[in-house]
Amino acid sequence: MPKFAIFGLGYTGLRILRTLQKENVVLGVSRETKVEGSILLDLSDTVSLENFLKEYEGSKFDASLITFPAQKLENREQVFDTIFSISKTVWMFGSTSIYQRITSDITEKTPLDPEHDRYKTELQFLEKGGKILRLSGIYGPGRNPANWARKGSVKKTKRQLNLIHADDISEVVRLLLSYPGNDLPSELILSDGQWHTWLEIFRFLEDHGKIQVVPEEKMDREDSFIDSSLIRKFLPGLQTKDFWGELEKLEELI
């Protein structure tokens, strides 16, 4: 039976842990969250990290996944060395915000922004042989895009919104970690591949009386469509949730 490790049990990490536990041996590693199948470990504590390495270096994980923003760790090099030492394959979550908005479509070939806070850390990770799954905006239960509109953190513009449901992320991780071949690219993008703008979302919410009607505004920044066709070539059966149907559920309209 495959053996995996999930580092970081936040919004997505915890869901991934529970999905993988259905068919695999999985160890969850978190600084704060303690659930069945997990341990508490502060990765910034060098001594604890050394002890963790000693405990698990004799039995490697088939794959490990880093779900938290590793660039915030001062000892990230030690963290990477530790995880690579105990894992045959290592994946890390990234963000599609790292791509430069210079074309209407963003793919894995789009240049990265060297000023992005993840840039140096991702290069360091890739040089060690890791693989990165860059995610679009994450939504789902507890992360309702409509609330971003209510709070005024987004504007009513024609700007494209690129999203991926938390449950879809869990399923994609399951498929990637159990992928039978060795031809997966080192960098992949994941989005739901659906076209929807903030203007459409605002109007949907307004029509259902969920928010007050506000005037349309001009776009305040460049937008691009996140093209996730490459990952679908390797996972041809991948199905992602319908955004409008999920929004109706989150707004309790169905």
Score class of each variant (00 low, 15 high):
Leu65Pro: 00
Pro111Asn: 06
Lys72Gln: 12
Asp42Asn: 10
Glu74Phe: 12
Glu108His: 05
Lys109Thr: 10
Ser87Leu: 11
Leu43Phe: 01
Lys60Ile: 12
Glu108Pro: 01
Lys60Gly: 01
Asp62Ser: 07
Asp62Gly: 02
Thr89Leu: 14
Phe68Gly: 01
Ser104Glu: 13
Ile86Arg: 07
Val90Ser: 06
Glu77Met: 03
Lys72Ile: 06
Gln100Ala: 15
Phe61His: 12
Asp45Ser: 05
Ser59Val: 11
Asp105Arg: 14
Thr82Val: 08
Gln71Ile: 11
Leu41Trp: 02
Phe52Asn: 03
Phe61Ser: 06
Leu41Phe: 01
Ser64Trp: 03
Pro69Ile: 05
Arg118Phe: 12
Asp117Lys: 09
Thr103Arg: 13
Tyr99Pro: 02
Trp91Met: 06
Glu57Tyr: 09
Thr67His: 13
Glu55Leu: 12
Lys54Trp: 04
Glu74Trp: 06
Val47Glu: 14
Val90Phe: 08
Phe84Met: 05
Ser95Met: 08
Gln100His: 10
Thr67Phe: 14
Gln71Arg: 08
Ile102Ala: 13
Phe68Ile: 00
Ile83Tyr: 02
Pro111Leu: 06
Thr110Asp: 11
Ala70Met: 13
Lys109Asn: 13
Met92Tyr: 14
Thr46Ala: 15
Gln78Val: 08
Asp42Leu: 04
Ala63Ile: 04
Phe68Tyr: 00
Asp45Leu: 07
Pro111Val: 04
Ala70Arg: 03
Gly94Ser: 09
Phe84Lys: 02
Lys54Val: 10
Phe52Cys: 03
Gly94Phe: 11
Lys109Ala: 11
Phe80Asp: 03
Ser59Pro: 00
Ser59Leu: 10
Ser64Phe: 04
Glu108Lys: 02
Phe80Gly: 01
Leu40Thr: 12
Ser85Ile: 03
Ala70Asn: 07
Ala70Leu: 13
Gln71Tyr: 14
Leu41Gln: 03
Ala63Arg: 03
Thr103Ala: 15
Glu57Ser: 10
Lys60Arg: 08
Ser95Leu: 07
Thr96Glu: 09
Leu49His: 07
Asp42Lys: 05
Gln100Leu: 15
Asn51Tyr: 08
Lys54Ser: 12
Leu65His: 00
His116Lys: 05
Tyr99Gln: 05
Thr67Gln: 12
Phe84Asn: 04
Thr82Met: 07
Ile102Lys: 15
Asn51Gly: 05
Gln78Leu: 14
Ile102Trp: 15
Ile66Glu: 00
Asn75Val: 09
Ala63Gln: 02
His116Tyr: 14
Gln71Val: 14
His116Asn: 09
Phe61Asp: 12
Arg76Met: 05
Leu40Gly: 13
Gln100Val: 11
Lys60Cys: 05
Val47Gly: 04
Pro114Glu: 15
Glu74Ala: 15
Val79Trp: 02
Phe80Arg: 04
Leu43Gln: 00
Gln100Cys: 13
Tyr99Val: 02
Asp81Thr: 00
Ile106Tyr: 03
Ser97Leu: 04
Leu65Gln: 01
Phe61Pro: 15
